[in-house]
Write a protein that binds this DNA or RNA. Structure first.
Length: 492
RNA sequence: CGGGAUGUGGCGUAGUCCGGUUAGCGCACACGGCUGGGGGCCGUGGGGUCACAGGUUCAAAUCCUGUCAUCCCGACCA
């Protein structure tokens, strides 16, 4: 397991924090619970966005944008929504500042500028969006509505952590409206599969697809589907959710349509989202003691070329070769940086690129000029090999997909090694405390049992996995009959 | 919101208990040189209202009071 990245022996959260900051992804902002996403981190986020956006569009969705502010009355309209997020909202109460009469150097809120109705800064956009859809939907001809929004939201969480839980975060939220229950359900399921595919194919992060228990379900949803990933410290991370909302929101916001038979019906709805938390998931899934490890498909720089030279003449001859390789790789769609900075020595560059997780490094020096070769180093295994210049481009191309695949396999093995089937509560507690990870156990299906287990162990039901074959058994806690194993874990 | 801790150049810190030279060190930074196949070396230099406000004192980074901020642990969550 990756630890002690920056020479100090600290706990995992310190390690994680240091890694995020030192690799240049992000840093804490002076604003409470917020972070600054630095260019390198944002570049990764943009790659995630681009891929997800493509997948949404391929399945018929469009992007739109809705207001940041939600009038309080609208927020109230969906009672369960208020239940879910009311505790953690930022609220705009005034619209003007003025010079403080007691201290001319300071500003104060102008008490005369109090808003008639407070504006909630969206913790999620259901309220504002459904209030808008109401006006868009009259007939079955207006359906389905398949809209996604890329936005920021604010939740006043008690304990923020870089990427995993920041006060303000970036996400996409899809909100769809359908004629039939079945269509909405299919939508929610399909999106969850898109999330899973994205996580596994692009992030190289294995996930378990499943359904949330009632306790963990989104307030206002009839069913919540999720993808759950396992981090290297043995804790689970919910990486994405997709909700079948039934007609709850349609009823709350009075969204009806006339069907083909001329009858008035409430629409069926879904909502779904993934957030900048995925960045945290990516970091915690693959990183090691030397820093980030990025899957090639999301790495802003896939290949870096480092020249090793003594004197300008040598640099010139290396540069010629390096630039030739660079342009050939770019033609193949590979992003390549030629790191010819004269301000750092090669060793320092190596360390820096490793910290930043660049998947492949090519080093070219005097020896290579002589032998017509280059030294290739892969970030995931930290191995080096000498490759003949003629085979280089082809080799790199193949190596990138190898690395992508290897990262997935490695993470998958880690996860498989950390799914433990338990048969008794003693075993449950022992595995949880000594080994961590996912625990597969029988559960009687009641909230009560789930809550008791959470109280005693901090572990929650992460999901009821889709593809677990139903096997009869006895609940690990209550001993009552159970039809299926579910996945428990401590979660972020 | 409860419990614990911490605020000293950009970062990490010593000094605080027991007040007393010019607030020390490492990294980073700048300049010069030697260097260059894994975080190089030597020399020189710049950078600090010691979180903020008030108080005690001949004297405060150090003691007292208050405020603010951050971090960790819990409950909450994408």
């Amino acid at each position: 397991m990756a630890k002690n990245l920056i020479t100090r022996e600290e706990d995992y959260s310190k390690w994680y924090n240091d890694l995020v900051v030192k690799s240049g992804l992000a840093e804490n902002s002076s604003v409470r619970g917020c972070m600054v996403i630095k260019p390198y981190g944002y570049a990764i986020w943009e790659k995630m966005q681009a891929q997800l956006d493509k997948m949404f569009k391929e399945t018929g969705h469009q992007n739109a944008y809705f207001p940041l502010f939600v009038p309080k009355s609208l927020f109230e309209a969906e009672e369960k929504n208020a239940e879910g997020f009311a505790k953690e909202c930022a609220i705009v109460t005034h619209y003007r500042l003025e010079t403080d009469p007691d201290n001319p150097k300071k500003l104060r809120v102008d008490p005369k500028a109090k808003l008639e109705e407070e504006l909630i800064i969206r913790p999620t956009s259901e309220a504002i969006i459904w209030n808008t859809y109401k006006n868009w939907i009259q007939s079955y001809r207006d359906l389905p509505i398949l809209i996604n929004q890329w936005a920021n939201v604010v939740r006043w969480e008690m304990r923020p952590r870089l990427f995993l839980r920041t006060t303000e975060f970036l996400w996409q939220e899809g909100h769809t409206a359908h004629q039939t229950e079945d269509e909405a359900m299919q939508e929610a399921l399909m999106i969850n599969s898109i999330y899973a595919e994205f996580a596994e194919k692009h992030m190289s992060m294995p996930v378990i697809q499943g359904i949330k228990s009632e306790n963990e379900r989104f307030a206002g949803a009839e069913e919540t589907f999720c993808i759950e990933a396992l981090m290297q410290d043995g804790k689970a991370l919910q990486a994405g959710t997709s909700h079948f909302l039934g007609q709850n929101f349609a009823k709350a916001f009075d969204v009806k349509f006339t069907n083909k038979e001329g009858k008035l019906n409430y629409v069926w709805a879904t909502s779904w989202g993934v957030s900048s938390r995925l960045m945290g998931a990516l970091i915690m899934t693959h990183s090691d003691d030397k820093g980030l490890v990025l899957p090639p498909k999301l790495a802003p720089i896939q290949v870096v070329i480092v020249p090793i030279y003594n004197g300008e003449q040598e640099l010139d001859s290396i540069s010629k070769i390096a630039e030739d390789i660079q342009s050939k790789l770019i033609k193949l769609g590979v992003s390549v940086k030629y790191d010819n900075r004269d301000t750092l020595r090669p060793g320092a560059k190596f360390a820096q690129h490793e910290l930043q997780g660049v998947p492949i490094r090519i080093a070219i020096g005097p020896k290579d000029l002589e032998n017509n070769s280059a030294e290739i180093s892969r970030r995931d295994l930290l191995t080096k090999e000498i490759i003949d210049m003629g085979d280089l481009v082809e080799h790199i191309d193949k190596l990138l997909s190898d690395i992508q695949e290897n990262l997935f396999k490695k993470a998958l093995k880690f996860r498989e090694d950390h799914i433990t089937q338990v048969e008794s509560f003693d075993e449950f507690e022992e595995v949880l405390n000594k080994k961590g990870g996912f625990i597969s156990a029988h559960w009687d299906g009641t909230n009560e049992t789930e809550n008791k287990i959470k109280e005693k162990t901090q572990a929650t039901i992460r999901c009821i996995p889709n593809n677990s074959s139903s096997s009869k058994g006895k609940c690990v806690y209550s001993g009552k009959p159970s039809n299926q194993r579910v996945i428990f874990a401590k979660a972020y």
